[in-house]
Design a protein around this nucleic acid. Sequence first.
DNA 1: CCCTGATTCGC
DNA 2: GCGAATCAGG
Length: 179
Amino acid sequence: MSWTDERVELLKKLWNQGLSASQIASELAGGITRNAVIGKVHRLGLSGRAKSPAPQQARPRKPATRAPSHPMTHTAPAPSPVARGNLAVMPKATPIVAPLVELAPAPVAEVVIPMSERVTIMELRDTMCRWPHGDPTSEDFRFCGAKSPPGAPYCPFHAQIAYQPSLDRRRSAAKFAAS
DNA sequence: CCCTGATTCGC
DNA sequence: GCGAATCAGG
């Protein structure tokens, strides 16, 4: 593949939309790497770009730095409800063992992972679901790619299908709704 | 470890 | 011009 006018246009568009180089590389199928994208971006002279609409990550707020109170004017903080033994406002205890089956979302009859969410074997990470989609001999063959539990081959959704094929989902869902 | 863009430099 | 390798950082 090469940088046809069409592909360059798409590159410009996506770059200005704030997509990352690797994301753009995925869109521009054809063995384009993020390095290629970045290199092209620089050659086109559009390295700086508008603020990305989707900030990479929302930074956790800095723990508000409290103004130090003067020792002489310091007033004791109000005792917390817990310290006063007010059981009525104490946080409820969280069950140690969560009812996993009931908490799991009711599965839809058919699993449809959008193509855009799926990953190629090259994009597959250790933490991703390996559930296959499509013909392994086809260019379009993808894996689910959803986040799977540590060490697990499938995400919770596919694992349920893989390991509990005969689960009566409707009854399970009704039970959940009733609780 | 996951990811990001920036830069270099052989091709 | 191209992009892999590398760097520097979150």
